[in-house]
Each structure stands twice: as C-alpha cells, then as structure tokens.
C-alpha cells in the first residue's frame, strides 16, 4: 500500500473538512472527527460536486447539492445516497497525516462495518484476476460458485439468452459487488451474463467459503446479509417501488 503525507493536523478544523492532494494529484477529503481523522474521495459520486463545500457535523457528511449523505468513518451511503464514498487509510504520526489507498474489499458497500479480522480473512480468500476488454465472465446457466468485487474497470450485464437479451445494468465503481447468486441459497446457476467492457481487475471470492467465514462471525454476517439484500433490491426494484 502506497502512502503519502498529505497535510498537517493543524490544517484540519476541529470536526471539519479539508480538500488535500494525494498520490498522483488525486483529490482527497480529510475529515476530523473528535480525536480521529478519516479520508474519503473529494468529489461526490453523484454529480461531480466538491464535497469540501458540503455540510459536516463531525460524523455525517452531506453533499449540499442533492443531500446525499455518508458515514465519515466507513464511507457507507446513508439516507438518499445511492453510492458509498471511496475511503482511504489514514495514519497520524506527530503532526502529519498520511493517507494510503484501500483494497477493493474495504471500499465496497457490501463489507463496510465488517469486523477487521473477518475482513482480513475475506481478503485472503480473494483472488485478484485481470480481464481484457470484451471477455465474458459468465453466461446464464453457468454454475454460480464465485462472486466478484470490482477493483478497476467496467462490467456490463445482460439478461435473457441468444438474440433475446436486454441490458441489465453495469458496474463501474471500485468495490462494487456482483455475481451475488454465489451468496444465495437455491441459486446454483447464473441468470445473467457478465461481460468486461474495459480492461478490468476483479477480485474473485468463493461464495461457499465466504459464507462459512461469515457464519463464524454472525455479527459481521448479519451486516453483510442486510447490505446484500439492499443491494439486490436496488437492482430489482419494480416500477414504482423506488
């Protein structure tokens, strides 16, 4: 993990925010919350609004444009927000704040709030794989043994077979999870096809092994299942069921 000093403690107001520059000119938002510091992406995932102009009370960050909100500790979406914020690792040494990037599993909404030891074990299960643009990950009817976490790139879904297919959404944010049939009972096969649109890096995790791991930490398992059901509902929402 790369890390870089990006600002001094004195530059961040108490329970306040500051936009800073990280690795390679990447813009980051550093927030103070009591004695702790957190770093998240500086731009709202909704409409490219700078989040340093947002509202912040030391715990919840609100973008002033459309009131999307996030928990500053986890980056998890709250209220109206449809996407989490990418979170970065923060370490404080003396009066300097260092920020490093996080793995895709730590960024995604499915695992936000999971206990650190469990997350470390899940990360150990994950195999990082590279796919070239145009490759197909799976097709309807394929066994649904693994689920995927997007690290970088873009994946598109189609439902239906042969000529009678229709687009069923796409994934483009680091940490987004798909292929979730692998985490569900009685869903042994894929119901959609997944195609990689750009050169992409994906984390592949075996569903059965992940479920066994979550069974041994039911508190974390409960969080993951709640988030998974919300995720599925968002994709399957029927007309008017918004």
């Amino acid at each position: 993990m790369t890390r870089k000093i990006i600002c001094k403690i004195a530059e961040i107001p108490a329970n306040g925010l500051k936009e800073c520059e990280g690795e390679g000119g990447l813009k980051l938002l550093v927030a103070n919350s009591g004695k702790e510091y957190f770093a998240v992406q500086a731009i709202c995932p909704h409409q490219d609004v700078p989040l340093c102009e947002g509202l912040y009370d030391g715990a919840v960050l609100t973008c002033h444009q459309h009131l999307w909100q996030w928990d500053i500790r986890t980056g998890a979406a709250m209220g109206l927000a449809e996407a989490p914020l990418e979170r970065y690792d923060v370490t404080v040494e003396g009066d300097a704040i260092y920020v490093g990037s996080q793995g895709a599993l730590n960024v995604g909404e499915l695992f936000a709030g999971v206990a650190a030891p469990t997350l470390a074990l899940l990360t150990a299960l994950a195999k990082s794989e590279e796919y070239a643009a145009g490759s197909t990950l799976y097709k309807p009817g394929d066994p649904a043994e693994d689920f995927f976490v997007l690290d970088s790139g873009r994946v598109e879904f189609q439902i239906g077979r042969d000529e009678r297919t229709s687009p069923a959404g796409f994934m483009l944010k680091k940490g987004e999870v798909f292929g979730w049939a692998a985490l569900l009972e009685n869903h042994p096969h894929r119901i959609a096809s997944a195609r990689v649109l750009e050169n992409s890096v994906l984390l592949r995790i075996n569903g059965k092994q992940a479920l066994e791991l979550l069974e041994s930490d039911p508190a974390s398992g409960f969080i993951v299942m709640r988030r998974l059901s919300a995720l599925i509902a968002r994709f399957l929402a029927a007309p008017g069921a918004k």
Partner: peptide, 22 residues
Amino acid sequence: DASIRVLLLEAKLTADNIRYDK
C-alpha cells in the same frame, strides 16, 4: 442553501424530509 444548513445540522431533519428543486 442556508435553510438546508439549518434543517440538517440544527433541526436534524433527515435528508428525505427536505425537498426543493433548483
């Protein structure tokens, strides 16, 4: 914007109970 600030930070209304069209 000033009203949003009051309603969110002081009144602690949830975001879905603050409606406006810009």
